[in-house]
């Protein structure tokens, strides 16, 4: 352990006879976004659930914010989870609650007063550009809107770590792009550490080739990085057969000679 925000040390996990993770080790630095790629069923989502403590590894250690969470009890995990925001695959919004109640869920549970909740929820919804939807029910929202509400919900409480579980899966390219830009803003302006699970190479391109800055008029602008200069805050982790196939920065990834990664990049 050391300066990592999230660290996995030789983590093994199997469901019954099926090995899902077979000795995974990696680390995410504070302020870094690590894109986790791999085919379906390679244990990408499992990694995120392990970080949250929703699953326990069979062996190996997991550190979050320099704390060994591997043997944490459920109540210790509950405290630890306040540092983490999770964006689920389909948003995983609570169907019975309105957008307002969904986003403010953490605050409602804590028993915060109504004014504070309203203020926070509006600020978070403004961040994902959905303030108009505040009184809608999840069923009335489109797929892309649900993910954005999911992101807003994850941001309440200003977590230092955000986990994305295929936030762009099944979305049209412009909407997927919007989601990625939100992740870029969080990475560059809020300094959160992230694991970004995806199997879409377009997401990786967007995240690695752009950065967010504050423009002349105080507005947030997403700028394409100059040619040949990739954002160092974005690194890659490629999983295959429950093992780490490659870990490194964007250049290492693009220039990899591994045939599996090259098919993934659609280079061959």
């Amino acid at each position: 352990m050391g300066e990592y925000a999230i660290e996995f040390q030789d983590v093994h996990l199997s469901f019954g006879t099926q090995k899902v993770l077979d000795g995974i080790s990696f680390g995410v630095y504070p302020g870094e976004t690590k894109i986790v790629m791999g085919g379906s069923g390679t244990g990408k989502s499992t990694v995120l659930k392990l970080v949250l403590g929703l699953l326990k590894p069979d062996s190996g250690r997991i550190f979050v914010d320099n704390e060994d969470i591997t043997d944490f009890s459920e109540s210790q995990l509950t405290v630890m989870r306040q540092k983490i925001g999770m964006v689920f695959q389909e948003g995983a919004l609570f169907d019975s609650l309105s957008v307002y109640e969904n986003v403010g869920y953490r605050l409602f549970e804590r028993g915060a007063d109504e004014e504070e909740i309203e203020e926070t929820v509006r600020r978070m919804l403004r961040f994902v550009n959905l303030e108009d939807a505040i009184n809608k029910m999840p069923a009335e929202l489109s797929g892309g809107m649900r993910r954005r509400v999911g992101i807003a919900r994850a941001l309440v409480g200003n977590p230092k770590i955000i986990l994305y579980d295929e936030p762009t899966a099944g979305l049209d390219p412009p909407t997927a792009r919007t989601i990625c830009e939100l992740a870029i803003k969080l990475r560059d302006l809020e300094g959160v550490s992230s694991l970004f699970v995806t199997h879409r190479i377009q997401d990786a391109l967007t995240l690695a080739d752009h950065h967010a800055t504050i423009g002349d008029n105080g507005e947030v602008v997403i700028v394409k990085n100059p040619r040949g200069q990739t954002e160092t805050a974005t690194t890659f982790l490629m999983l295959r057969h429950g093992k780490v196939l490659l870990e490194g920065d964007a250049d290492t990834f693009w220039n990899s000679t591994d045939p599996y990664i090259r098919t993934f990049l659609e280079l061959d």
Partner: peptide, 18 residues
């Protein structure tokens, strides 16, 4: 069951609710 398969139970735990 529906909450389970749509990951709402996981989301609930992730948000610190038992």
């Amino acid at each position: 069951g529906a909450m389970c398969v749509s990951e709402q139970i996981d989301a609930m735990r992730a948000l610190g609710t038992d």
